[in-house]
Design a protein around this nucleic acid. Structure first.
Ligand code: MN
Ligand code: MN
Ligand code: ZN
Ligand code: ZN
Lengths: 126, 126
DNA sequence: TAATTAATGCGACTGTGTTGCAATAATACG
DNA sequence: CGTATTATTGCAACACAGTCGCATTAATTA
């Protein structure tokens, strides 16, 4: 079940995402919130927001889950077929425009393709 | 640093991978080893084998790291540009033949593409 | 304003993986 | 072979991300 009440914590989390250009891990998110926001609450808010399709999540390096606002998907269907990029130097993660073409396989029915591109971002390149 | 000595644990781990059709997480691997093989030892062996390019690793669902024998890459270069498939029902993970084409991006230099396809395997489909 | 119940804070817990250190055992070398 | 060297192991303690039960707080509803 998703979010039903407008609370301070909810607003803080949403603001953090709105002010962020990149995707945020729970850790990064907490660094951008007042220190007194409870850790469990943050995780629960992320879960609820994901349930509601307000944010989507995906895995990046070091087994870390990242979250970002959903911008393009219609609230009804909710498709996340875009790729993500993570910089090997600064670890920053961003959503890409690039839609991923889900390939067809012989032995399997493929429903989803998770693509993480890794390399170097513009800032770290020079 | 990689493996330099031929030990019982090393043989057990290698056998487990050789007998497995799928990729194995540390957890799955340990289930296939005698119960007395130490957990730390397993993780250390996986690290060493990966250093040596005997196995490669990648992340699947639930933030779980999977390992599989390297079959195709020449020991010198060592490229892992193939995709992986994970079944949403039985969670089994396999390496695919499918080479991944690393796309070009404007703002980033892409060095690597990690592709995890998710869906349903043949067994779970019927 | 009072009742309902979603959201929160807290502490304990789980699971995956890591690390320091002393003991063990594989290998090299005479 | 016997010994020295040191990679590997076992253990226990730790780190870290995330989860959960439960009592309390507070947003919403009526
Ligand atoms: Mn995204
Ligand atoms: Mn593979
Ligand atoms: Zn960077
Ligand atoms: Zn399956």
């Amino acid at each position: 079940m998703g979010v039903t009440r407008k609370t301070r914590n909810l607003e803080l989390v949403l603001d953090a995402f709105r002010n962020a250009q990149e995707a945020l891990s729970a850790q990064l998110l907490m660094e951008r919130l007042p220190a007194d926001v409870n850790r469990s609450t943050v995780y629960r808010l992320l879960d609820r927001l994901e349930d509601d399709g307000v944010v989507h999540s995906f895995l990046a390096s070091e087994n870390i889950k990242f979250y970002a606002l959903c911008k393009e998907c219609p609230p009804s269907v909710h498709v996340h077929s875009h790729a993500h990029f993570q910089c090997n130097s600064c670890s920053q993660v961003v959503c890409l425009e690039q839609e991923v073409v889900v390939p067809t396989l012989n032995q399997y029915r493929v429903d989803e393709a998770q693509v993480l591109l890794k390399g170097q971002c513009a800032t770290c390149m020079r």
